[in-house]
Amino acid sequence: MRTLFDTTRIGSITLKNRFIRSATWESMADQTGRPTRQLVDLYEGLALGGVGMIITGATIIVPDPTGLPEMLSIADDRYIPTYQEMISKIHRHGVPVVMQITYVGRGGTWTTPTDLSEIELRDLARTYANAAERAQKAGFDGIQIHAGHGYFLSQFQNSGKNKRIDRYGGEVSNRARFILEMYDLVRSRVGNDFGVFIKINCGDFEDEDDRVFETCRYTCNQLSERKIDGIEITGGAGNGLPLPPRGKYEESVLRDYAAMIAEEIETPVMMVGMNRDLILMSELLEKTKISYFSMSRPFIREPDLVMRWKNHQEHKSACTSCNACRKQEIIRCPFRSVPEKMDT
């Protein structure tokens, strides 16, 4: 019987449990996109707290990027040495770390699928592959391609947002094409022993017939056939990241989407979205083929949540998803009893 505290392997990566810190915008990089001491301390605290794997905040891959304030960067080779100390500190505690890479736009403008020509898309695919190679050279255990939350890659899946009339728009196989071509290039550059993951929207939940889940299922099946290491199912787009109506579920709200994908593919499926109930996650692990549970806000409130669960399974997550953590100058929970370290 599978348990949440199993030691498992995803490709070449060993995890000491099934809990993953999902990528979170921390607003803790410096003005050049390099990790501050504060961010290194945050990641080391998560590792000490017992998490099975850490996925970094979204990391930009181009110079002059559009994005959120104080995002990490891996835009050129000069960034490679800046991550080595951080990775070493995380690895010291037996925890793998994966860099999430993303593209939003350039020069203050968010890019949409119709903004780039086919030649520019091929250039961007090479940019993703370059970033993956840099992450590998820096010592990360893998990269995660961010294809969720309304960002550039996510928009290709939505039939209402992807207005292309060439081979990258229209039918489902076309809407998935750029992600698949880019993945193939990334894999060819980093080899089979380096972790490659994707975080992908199962729905934008803004319009009823955006056909996002249709594209998600197709893309996940294709990526599984290509031997991607792991797929994290997420959802929501825009500033509020709308999720399915709370009427059906209060916890693990994307469970039906993730379970359906997991049933269809061999690749391990991770699920994010209101995962806070240990008993429920244990039941989902037993009754579905979902393999891992990703969390963001609960770890902002309690970085040692996994250790607390391991020692006291009756412990309830203190996070109420109030989003007060996103209203600070940096992403931190104002209700934590132990303050964040503020030195940079």
Results as ranks from 00 to 15, higher is better:
66 T>R: 02
82 T>L: 12
119 I>R: 10
117 S>V: 09
114 T>M: 11
88 S>I: 03
96 P>F: 01
108 G>F: 04
79 Y>Q: 13
75 A>D: 13
60 I>S: 08
79 Y>R: 11
116 L>W: 10
53 M>R: 00
84 Q>R: 14
78 R>N: 07
76 D>L: 09
118 E>C: 09
68 L>T: 04
83 Y>T: 10
104 V>K: 01
110 W>F: 13
59 T>M: 10
113 P>C: 06
95 V>Q: 02
112 T>W: 07
78 R>C: 06
76 D>H: 10
99 M>I: 03
57 G>A: 07
96 P>H: 00
98 V>Y: 03
120 E>P: 00
125 A>Q: 13
102 T>Q: 07
86 M>T: 12
103 Y>D: 00
117 S>M: 11
55 I>R: 04
77 D>T: 12
80 I>V: 15
67 G>Y: 05
82 T>S: 14
73 S>T: 12
79 Y>M: 14
93 H>L: 00
104 V>H: 07
62 V>N: 02
103 Y>F: 09
85 E>D: 07
56 T>L: 09
70 E>Y: 14
87 I>P: 08
60 I>K: 08
87 I>E: 05
91 H>M: 01
100 Q>I: 02
86 M>W: 05
84 Q>H: 11
68 L>P: 02
74 I>L: 15
93 H>R: 00
59 T>L: 10
97 V>E: 01
54 I>M: 05
66 T>K: 01
